[in-house]
């Protein structure tokens, strides 16, 4: 099954700091900036980040108001895909993870009483997943382009019209087990620093930016991670 594991994550300090909830970068204490840089370096030297993406393309055989039918008999339930991408030709089921290493280190820091390190490293992990998603989207955009198609922006289980209950289905469609990603009985992804998404491809697919997502989110005024106030 297709797996991408040669993804280079070019993590920038600002990406990481946004994930710590910092809104005014100039006011960040030098001690914290230094620690962030030190931890960033450690992720490279100790292989705490192992970015990997598993995916599978599925040609669309039918589109109904509340579900998409895929070749091979699979179905993705929910109205989001049919309403947003009515002209899609195929769907890519995708699961991305940075692996379990970073969160193990976060737990070790926490248990050792190094709460600040734990928190900052956890933020680095979240930023790494953000970048991994961007790089993965770039890959799919390139793949679609090779076939004369366009790739959409990603949609995720839990968005309105794509029930969170589709998560288990999506992980199966993407063969998430091949890269060590699974769901707990209550539906939490393990490793936690993982994400799942669907990208549609077709002649003209809708795309949007993170800022546009943040601007439409009902948590935009209070969310510490918004890109709008960066």
């Amino acid at each position: 099954m297709p797996v991408i594991n040669d993804i280079r994550l070019n993590l920038k300090k600002n990406d990481v700091l946004r994930r710590q909830g910092f809104k005014g970068y100039t006011r960040i204490r030098p001690e914290i900036k230094t620690l962030v840089l030190e931890l960033l370096e450690s992720t490279e030297s100790t292989r705490l980040l192992e970015p990997t993406t598993a995916y599978e393309f599925y040609p669309i055989t039918g589109m109904e108001p509340d579900r998409v039918l895929l070749q091979g008999g699979a179905v993705v339930n929910g109205s989001l895909l049919p309403s947003t991408f009515p002209d899609a030709k195929e769907l890519a089921a995708i699961v991305c993870t940075i692996g379990p290493g970073l969160e193990k280190q976060v737990t070790e820091y926490s248990r050792g009483g190094e709460t600040l390190r734990a928190m900052l490293l956890d933020g680095i992990g979240s930023a790494a997943v953000d970048i991994l998603v961007q790089e993965t989207c770039r890959f799919f955009s390139g793949e679609a382009s090779k076939r004369g198609l366009q790739a959409s922006s990603p949609v995720n289980p839990g968005m309105p019209g794509l029930p969170i209950t589709e998560q288990r289905n999506l992980l199966e469609l993407a063969h998430a087990g091949d890269i060590g990603v699974s769901l707990t009985s209550s539906g939490v992804m393990v490793p936690r620093k993982s994400t799942s998404m669907i990208i549609a491809t077709g002649p003209e697919m809708k795309t949007w930016t993170q800022a546009e997502i943040c601007a439409r989110c009902n948590l935009r005024e209070t969310c510490p991670y918004t890109v709008l106030r960066s």
Partner: peptide, 16 residues
């Protein structure tokens, strides 16, 4: 919002 969560945790580590 003069300090952020990492500052808060940093203050806690100094206090510790």
């Amino acid at each position: 919002s003069e300090y952020f969560i990492p500052d808060l945790v940093y203050s806690g580590e100094i206090l510790k």
